Computed example of a mutant assay.
Amino acid sequence: MRIAVVAESFLPHMNGVTHSLLQVIAHLRRRGDDVSIIAPASSWLDDEAPPALEGFPVHRLPSIPLRGYPNVRVAAGTVARVRRLLADFAPDVVHVASPFILGWRAVQAAHQLGIPSVSVYQTEIPAYAARYGLPWLEQLLWQRVENIHDLSTLTLAPSSFALEQLHGRGIRRVHLWRRGVDTTRFTPGKYDAAWRASVAPHGERIIGYVGRLAAEKQVEDLAVLADIPNTRLVVVGSGPLKQALQARLPGACFTGFQTGEQLARTMASLDLFVHPGESETFCQTIQEAHASGVPVVAVGRGGPLDLVVPSRTGWTYTPGRLDELRSRVLDLVGDDTKRRAFGRAACEAVQGRTWPVLCEQLTGYYAKAAEIKRRSLNVQAHD
């Protein structure tokens, strides 16, 4: 197949969208497909980003930094420019990753060209409005989301919560497509005793968080865990709130951004993983913790509802109930036998959720979108 991939964010900025796209693009290369990538430039002059990935060309559109979060770039340009890029490549399908601004242009361009589009709903952007002090924007942002997915040939949602959320907004042709996890990289065998000793020299239980340090992640909620005896909080990641969070959590260890083997060793060396963000459509780091044999305590909203099995692989807590968060953490850090049993069950639960399996499912959705578009065009021709 010929697949145009349109990314709302991309390298060198690493996040959940970029991570999943790297896995998909590598899989398409192994299959022998032909891919063209359209993404925002990493700077106005785009002197940092590679011109190709896995041998596929990356077409960069001029971009501007998002106010308050300069690492996130917003692509400039018009629907006509995206349409020209698509027309030149003539793809069988357009994969639109976490569409909102550039993705909206891509969906319109694909529709105008009669090319099927598969839009991957990955970020609950409307929920960010209140977190960034703009609650009045939420309904307008939802209108944009509805417009994008109504015009898309097919929409893929990463969790049961996201699927029901989109159905509740009246969006049709939505299917479930979860995320894979690298169970070779993330494994209990990456446990690093030396790293643990450097972080918790007195044998403290290590409570970890991995992710962006941004408002929507609600990392400040972890302050309710700061005074639990015989524990050490470790925060892995970077973002605009790093300094504010360091002031709020003075006893925590902030490691900065980690990836690859370094992240795998850190994850496997935690005793407990916590995630307080209420806007997660999936939450890949929960799967990575589980693959590492680490139980999870996460807020009971969004993607974590599919990933955390209460009383088996971890605990969930009611959104906003930080007393529940604390009590769930206390339950596991205070009981080594239970925590280890949860960790073993967590590791077993994610076996089989590999990226090759999920990517093959994705190519099936590409074929389904192409068939839907063919039928639609045939109906229009007969009318």
Rank of each mutant, 00 (worst) to 15 (best):
M1E: 13
V6N: 07
P12E: 03
H13C: 08
T18M: 04
L22A: 08
I25E: 15
L28N: 07
R29D: 05
R31F: 04
D33P: 05
D34A: 08
I38V: 15
S42N: 05
P51V: 07
F56M: 08
V58E: 01
G68R: 14
L86V: 01
V93I: 07
V93E: 06
A97E: 09
S98E: 13
S98F: 02
Q112T: 15
P126A: 06
L134F: 11
Q139M: 10
W142Y: 03
E146Y: 07
D150S: 15
P158R: 13
S159T: 07
S160H: 11
F161S: 11
E164H: 12
G168R: 06
W177F: 14
R179F: 01
G180K: 00
P188Y: 11
D192K: 00
D192W: 02
A194F: 01
G203V: 15
G208E: 03
A214P: 04
E216M: 05
K217I: 14
D221F: 00
P240S: 10
A244K: 15
R248C: 07
L249H: 12
C253R: 15
T255E: 00
R265I: 02
T266G: 06
V274T: 03
A291W: 03
S292F: 03
P295K: 14
V297R: 04
V297A: 15
G300D: 08
V308S: 07
G314N: 08
Y317D: 10
L322C: 06
D323T: 02
E324W: 07
S327K: 12
L330A: 09
G334Q: 02
R344H: 14
A345I: 09
Q351R: 15
R353Y: 08
T354C: 11
W355A: 14
T363L: 09
Y365L: 05
Y365C: 12
K373M: 09
K373E: 10
V379K: 13
Q380R: 15
